[in-house]
Design a protein around this nucleic acid. Structure first.
Lengths: 214, 214
DNA sequence: TATTATAACTAATGATATTAGTTTTGAGGA
DNA sequence: TCCTCAAAACTAATATCATTAGTTATAATA
């Protein structure tokens, strides 16, 4: 994947109280992956420049040579996270179509949020419309979903409503799972597959003006 | 509503550069409402003790006489927000049942998130299981939803899956709306009512073991 | 009026992000 | 091989937070 994993999972020079070696050899990729690790392992609120610098064995101002402050780091994290999410759901749906594909994608989506909780959260901030890369990453996921829905023949508008619906379902379910919001001992995988099944059963509604439209 | 609105929408003494009057007469309720106002108007990241103190015309340490630090304020905000949300959706569904009730509640839920964006966000943090008030506020909303679903005769387990589904739909949709995540010029109210319609059409699936259950 | 609980204060500490300006490195050209 | 120099890392400094400790002053009440 084009990345030297040297810093991950180890204490840095500073964390061990040693003197640093002259050049740390950082780049955006290393920063973002290390930050994602912090987000997943320690929580998103621990993703600070101070914490990241410590993990990488440098002083926090040094990070500014590679990213545009904390805001820039967050943007990069979102881009990275959306890319990973896209990879996960795309490969899950690969070779499938119809309900099978949607179910597989849904499972992968939620599993991503479960296994990379911090990184998933970074993808949720409003996609800064000024950042082309971020917008593109968002749109890649969107068109993946749109493709899966072609089969259902919903028409132009119906398709848009359906995409919104499916996104809502996946995001809502993933968020609640992640927060531990479903307390009880009832298998969440079953809940998810039945929710998607219910949605797909009624997906024809997306094309039908209903009596609840104000 | 048992609350003196004296501070809201006005600049404080400090903000106007005057000397303060001896006792500010604060209490938890005033703090929480002022904080909610900041959250809605300036964004949730602006809800700091410093900002809140300035708005109320006191110094930030004074706030500790009423709340348990920033963490405590956030907990109180979540409780308040869940209460307001509960009121909104309960009164929307009042006197209705079946699809009508679910549709009305869904509309009210999303409208709440739209009109009180900051306050809605405060309700999303994991419900600290140590805080009884917070848990109770969460559960009130949950049982409201459960009640609405009685009509559909889903059985014990089916009902639980359905609650999870509906919560996911509402939360997911509301979150995406709030983030401005649905770009285009397509009425979101229509998207929501059709999504709920699709869910209700397929709600029988909640009771049926499907072939996608791993 | 005197007492007293407590609301609000000041002062201090320790995180954090960020900027400015300095040092040092190491890669590529002389 | 040695020099140059862009850039990577640094130190120092500032500003904003949250939080704690200890002080002052208010206003209710005895």
């Amino acid at each position: 994947m084009g990345f030297s994993g040297q810093f991950f999972g180890q204490k840095s020079h500073y964390e061990r109280g040693e003197r640093m070696s002259p050049r740390a050899g950082l780049d955006v990729d290393i920063l973002v992956r290390a930050a994602a690790e912090i987000a997943d392992e320690e929580g998103i609120e621990e993703v600070t420049l101070a914490r990241l610098a410590a993990k990488l064995g440098v002083r926090s101002p040094s990070l500014y040579n590679h990213i545009n402050g904390l805001q820039g780091l967050r943007t990069q994290l979102a881009i990275y996270g959306l890319g990973e999410l896209n990879t996960a759901i795309a490969s899950a749906a690969e070779g499938l179509s119809g309900d099978d594909a949607v179910q597989a994608m849904g499972r992968a989506y939620v599993e991503f949020a479960r296994s990379r909780p911090g990184l998933y959260k970074t993808t949720l901030s409003s996609p800064d419309p000024n950042n082309a890369e971020l917008v593109a990453a968002s749109e890649r996921i969107l068109s993946l979903i749109i493709n899966l829905l072609q089969v259902y023949n919903l028409g132009k508008e119906g398709e848009l409503h359906a995409v919104r619906g499916l996104r809502s379902i996946l995001h809502g379910f993933a968020s609640i799972v992640q927060e531990g919001g479903f307390g009880m001992p009832l298998d969440t995988n079953i809940s998810l597959s039945r929710l998607i099944a219910a949605f797909l059963t009624g997906i024809g509604q997306m094309n039908i003006p209903g009596k609840y439209e104000s």
